[in-house]
Simulated scan of single mutants.
Amino acid sequence: MAQLIGALGIWNTSATRHTPLEDAQGIFSGSLVSALGLYVLASAGLLTGSTAGIAFLLHYTFGVNFGLAFFLLNLPFFYLSLKRLGIAFTIKTFVAIGLTSVLADVQSRFFEISSIHPAWAALLGGLLLGFGLLALYRHRASLGGVGILGIYMQERFGIRAGLVQLSVDMCVLAAAFFVTTPPVVIYSVVGAVVLNLFLTINHRADRYIAL
């Protein structure tokens, strides 16, 4: 029983170190919640930023499979992750991206959102993505792309990851004006702002540092 309690991290005497089982549940939970957030956005035809936003653009414009596009777009960022953030972070991020890509594609097999107002989708989708990313960040993982860059900038220069993400997201969403309607872009911007403000407020290295 004592070994099980230790593996689960219950009453863990080391406040800054996660057990492997804690990391596993955190990465799975973060990936699942993130995939749900992406599904909510997609149900209203909205986008988000970073590599997920580019994957949405490819999906809406050319019919490319979202999960596959999301996974492939993140591959170039693994070099930065491996070089700057270490092999453990890189492996956990690779797993998180793979899980999120698969889960995002299979969501519709388990339930379907038949109707949702785009404003509510932006709010709910942004918050779900924020919660998912926060869970991943706190277990030393991310959803790749700008998330990797954001964490590196925060740890190296003290620039908050949410602000880095927000800057890039605005560029991605600006490009969306060329492939979709202005209302869709506006609601998508709302979702991106909700996501990144949530991360900016809640993900601070001086409040939570875990290994």
Rank of each mutant, 00 (worst) to 15 (best):
residue 88 A to S: 11
residue 122 A to R: 02
residue 2 A to F: 15
residue 180 T to M: 12
residue 142 S to W: 01
residue 23 D to H: 14
residue 7 A to D: 06
residue 111 F to H: 06
residue 97 I to S: 10
residue 173 L to Y: 05
residue 150 G to W: 01
residue 48 T to M: 07
residue 75 L to T: 15
residue 179 V to W: 04
residue 201 I to A: 04
residue 67 G to M: 07
residue 202 N to Q: 03
residue 51 T to G: 05
residue 134 L to H: 00
residue 71 F to I: 01
residue 62 F to V: 03
residue 82 L to Y: 03
residue 26 G to A: 10
residue 197 L to F: 11
residue 143 L to F: 08
residue 38 L to C: 12
residue 60 Y to T: 10
residue 66 F to E: 05
residue 199 L to D: 01
residue 59 H to L: 06
residue 73 L to E: 04
residue 10 I to S: 06
residue 145 G to R: 04
residue 29 S to T: 11
residue 69 A to N: 08
residue 148 I to W: 01
residue 205 A to K: 12
residue 59 H to E: 07
residue 30 G to C: 08
residue 51 T to E: 02
residue 13 T to I: 13
residue 96 A to C: 09
residue 19 T to K: 04
residue 14 S to R: 15
residue 186 I to A: 15
residue 39 Y to T: 12
residue 42 A to P: 13
residue 118 P to H: 09
residue 14 S to E: 14
residue 146 V to E: 01
residue 53 G to A: 09
residue 201 I to R: 04
residue 36 L to P: 14
residue 61 T to Q: 07
residue 120 W to C: 02
residue 125 G to P: 05
residue 63 G to K: 05
residue 89 F to E: 02
residue 78 F to V: 14
residue 73 L to M: 08
residue 171 C to S: 07
residue 95 V to T: 14
residue 144 G to K: 05
residue 142 S to A: 08
residue 127 L to Y: 00
residue 102 V to I: 13
residue 55 A to Q: 06
residue 128 L to T: 07
residue 27 I to D: 02
residue 38 L to Q: 06
residue 25 Q to A: 03
residue 153 M to N: 05
residue 157 F to H: 12
residue 201 I to Y: 08
residue 163 L to V: 13
residue 101 S to V: 04
residue 175 A to Y: 03
residue 185 V to T: 06
residue 55 A to F: 12
residue 58 L to F: 13
residue 121 A to W: 04
residue 186 I to E: 14
residue 174 A to W: 08
residue 164 V to F: 02
residue 88 A to N: 10
residue 149 L to S: 11
